Simulated scan of single mutants.
Amino acid sequence: MSDRRYRTAIVGTGGIAVAHGRALKDLWHRADLVAVADVDPTRAKAFADRWDVPHAYDGLAELLDAQQVDLVHLCTPPEQHAPLAVQCLRAGVTVLVEKPPTLSLAEFDEMVEAERLSTGHVATVFQHRFGSAANRLRRLAAAGDLGRPLLATCATQWYRDDAYFSAPWRGTWESEGGGPTMGHGIHQFDLLLSVLGPWIEVTALAVRQARPTDTEDVSMALVSFDNGAVASVVNSVISPRQTSALRFDYEHATVEVEHLYGYDDKDWTFTPAPGHDTLLAEWTADGQNVPSGHAAQIEAVFDALDRGEPPPVRLADARRTMEFVAALYASAFTGKRVRSGQIGPDSPFTTRMDGAGAPWKEAASP
C-alpha cells in the first residue's frame, strides 16, 4: 500500500457534502482536504471552517486555477454533475460524482467521451456496493457456492413530505432527472445489479400518488437477468414506515439485508436451504464487518489510485444502472417492455428520463 496522501476538494457544500467531509476526516492518513467550493460563498466558508479546510472558493474554475488537486468530490445538485465533471476531466483531474451522475444517457455518454480524452477518471458514488457483506455475497455467488440465482426483491420505501420538495431543484425532470427512481432507490437497485449482473428486460410503472412534483413519487419494475434470475424493484417517497430492503433467493440460500441509509453485518441475515447448513460458516468465515458508506467507497477509490487504476464505480458499471433507470421510465410511460440496449440515440428517453413527458403532465394540460 502506498503512503501517498491525495489532495482532495469538495464542490457543493450542501447536505451530502457532510458525508464526504466526515469520510475524508476518517481517512486523514490518505487524504488532505485542501479546498471547497460553492456558489454560496457564505456556505462554502462555513463548511471550510467546520472541517478545517484552508481554502474556500465560489466556483470550480477558481478552485482548479488556484489548487493542484488529485480528486474532486462533486456534491452539487444533479443538474450540475455532468458539466462540472467534464470541466474536471478537461483539467486532467479525477472526479467522484454523487448520484445520479447525469440527468440522461446522452449526458452520460458525453462524460464517457470526455473521460476518453482525459488523463482523469470518473467514479460514481454508489456506496452500498462497498460494505463487507455485499462483497461477501458477490464472492460466494461468483464461486457458485450459493447455486443459481432465482429470485430477488428490492424495496426502497422512504418518506419525504411536501416541504422536502420546496428546494427548487427537487422533484423536477430538468434539475433532478427523476423522482425516487433516480434520486432515492438508485442506491438499492444499483447494489442489486452489482450482485445479479447484466439485466435483459424491464416492465415497469411510475405514478404520482401524493407529492407536489413533476416527477413520479412511486415506481415499480419487474426485471429479468442474463443469468436467469428475476427481480422486483419498488421505489417510493410516500411510505411512512421507511425501509431499504434487499432479498436474494439462490438455490442453496436466501440472503437478506434491511436497513435505512446504510448497513453493517448485523443488518444481514443468511438462511441456508435444507442440506446446505455448511454455507452459514462460509458466510461468517472472514470475520470482517465493514459498514457500507462513503468512507468505504472513498478508501476503495484511493486503493485504485495507488495501483494506477481507474477508481470504482467506473463509468461502464454506472451506465448499466443509468440505462436501467431510463428503461424503467420508458416502460412505465410507453406501456411496453424495454430490453437492454433498446434505448438508442433516437429515443426520447436518451435525452430525458421522462421521454416526451410524463402522462400526468399531459393530463394536466388545458
Rank of each mutant, 00 (worst) to 15 (best):
T8C: 13
T8E: 01
T8R: 00
I16S: 10
I16Y: 09
A17S: 14
V18Y: 05
H20C: 06
H29R: 09
A31R: 02
A35F: 02
V36T: 11
D38T: 04
D38V: 06
D40C: 03
K45G: 03
W51S: 08
H55F: 03
A56V: 02
Y57N: 02
A61F: 00
L63P: 02
L84V: 05
C88Q: 08
R90L: 13
R90Y: 00
G92I: 04
V95Q: 04
L96H: 15
P100E: 05
P100Y: 02
E110N: 09
V122N: 10
V122F: 10
V122Q: 12
A123N: 10
A123Q: 07
T124N: 08
Q127F: 13
G131P: 06
N135M: 10
G144N: 09
G147T: 05
L151I: 12
T153L: 07
C154P: 05
D162L: 04
P168I: 00
G171I: 09
W173Q: 09
E174S: 12
G178R: 09
G179R: 02
H187T: 06
Q188V: 05
L191I: 00
L196N: 06
G197I: 08
V202W: 10
L205Y: 02
Q209R: 15
Q209T: 13
Q209V: 14
T213D: 01
L222R: 15
D226R: 11
S232K: 08
V233Q: 09
V234R: 06
N235C: 15
N235V: 03
V237A: 03
I238P: 08
S239E: 14
R241C: 00
R241Q: 12
T243H: 13
H252V: 00
A253I: 09
E256M: 14
V257G: 05
V257M: 14
Y263P: 07
K266P: 00
W268F: 15
H276I: 00
L280S: 06
T284P: 00
N289R: 06
A295L: 01
A300R: 12
D303P: 03
L305F: 12
L305M: 15
P311V: 11
L315D: 07
A316C: 05
R319G: 02
R320L: 11
A326E: 10
A332K: 09
K336W: 04
R339C: 10
R339V: 09
S340F: 13
G344Q: 03
D346I: 00
T351I: 11
R352K: 11
G355W: 05
A356G: 14
A364Q: 10
S365D: 10
